[in-house]
Design a protein around this nucleic acid. Structure first.
Lengths: 215, 215
DNA sequence: TTGTCCTTACCTACCGTTAATTAATCTGAC
DNA sequence: GTCAGATTAATTAACGGTAGGTAAGGACAA
């Protein structure tokens, strides 16, 4: 046997397999609905291995959420500094989130699960901190838009909450009905609608077409 | 032959105590996070009593959701026939939902939990059917509004989804931060914003004030 | 006597977690 | 270079606890 270069020996292969398996399961069945036995089975390791790399189930969940959440927000935050106007920023953000939701729905489901979980559901982790981070970003953009007279109609927090509602509702819809397509066109249309409103006008700015058909 | 649900028998005290206790617990800790031991303790009955009135934990959850969901939608559906114009219908609906969310947050949390749960989370129940019923109502109203030239900007489904997003995001916000006040003014403001958009105009139609302060 | 409502006592399966131990790898004194 | 010793990584086998669920039967009204 020719000795090839020493196997990459990806540091902590077991650890990343565990994280991967945990992501799949937690994002489909939730925290309580997933057992440690399923996780280790999916990762192809034995149980004590999990306890070697993680303190316990909660620690595994928390670290997973932390990793995915950071990945997620880093991509979104990069947008603010590279795009100047409010409308374009909103479009860039919602397009980006749609791309992520299409490419790795598990990640998005995991994050939304944390945002929208019941008060006492899941492990103790600072949900507010995470939701806050995302909210603040939108709030800043809205405040900017208001100051530069690109927006009106409410304070920055209200506008941020409305926009998040529109965006998240669509991402949720995809999570429940994977055939839903979150296209860039849809993203732009939603921002246009957010800006122009749905009240009647002769020449509507936008003509959204629903991403899916119910029933 | 469809299995006909038995006529609403006289609900026994033990049965209603169980439903009440289950509502409290399920709406705070979720389905998997709640044990039947906690439920019976909260209801002040013994375990076999639960199994006397309900097939099992799943059955209890399903019947509870069915009851609360029907209560909920009945109140909302009444609005459509009693209010003529689109804008007023939307305002009436969101006001009503806000009132319900203020008065019985547990009910709302339970329902939203079903709508926004993970694909394999919780007991097998037809989430789509429930979500669908609510969605259809909004869709009908939007279609009506489009036909009567009270709305534009997209198809009925898109508008319904956007509106639901705005509304539900606020209800969720209250669920996570009970100090949030879902007032009639906020409700009206959200509809105005939905109709007029957040794009700048000299005299904004609405001037929303956020129902809470983050941090 | 029959059907309703509730009790005591118990079952099995699975949960998260751990002890005890071994295989593999690295370290440094000689 | 060799080899004791520490370190790291994984194993087997079980722990106590709790989960959902049940068998068998008693009290009591119709």
């Amino acid at each position: 046997m020719a000795t090839v270069a020493p196997a990459p020996k990806t540091v902590n292969e077991a650890e990343s397999k565990l994280l991967e398996s945990a992501l799949t399961l937690f994002s489909e069945k939730g925290y309580e609905g997933t057992s440690i036995r399923e996780i280790i089975e999916g990762a192809g390791v034995t149980r004590p291995v999990l306890y070697y790399y993680f303190e316990n189930k909660e620690d595994l969940f928390r670290r997973l959420v932390e990793i995915k959440f950071t990945e997620f927000t880093n991509q979104i935050e990069a947008i603010k500094s590279s795009v100047p106007t409010c409308a374009d920023r909103l479009k860039a953000i919602i397009r980006k989130e749609f791309v992520i939701a299409e490419r790795s729905p598990e990640t998005v489901r995991l994050i939304l699960q944390v945002f929208f979980s019941l008060p006492q559901q899941g492990p103790r982790l600072d949900k507010t901190r995470l939701a806050h981070a995302r909210f603040r970003l939108l709030e800043d953009i809205m405040r900017d838009g208001l100051e530069r007279n690109e927006l009106s109609g409410g304070d920055a927090q209200s506008l941020a909450l409305v926009f998040l509602g529109i965006m998240d509702m669509h991402i949720m819809a995809k999570s429940n009905r994977p055939e839903t397509r979150l296209t860039p066109d849809l993203a732009d249309g939603l921002v246009d609608l957010f800006l122009a409103g749905a009240g009647f006008r002769e020449a509507p700015v936008t003509a959204l077409v629903s991403p899916y058909t119910f029933g």
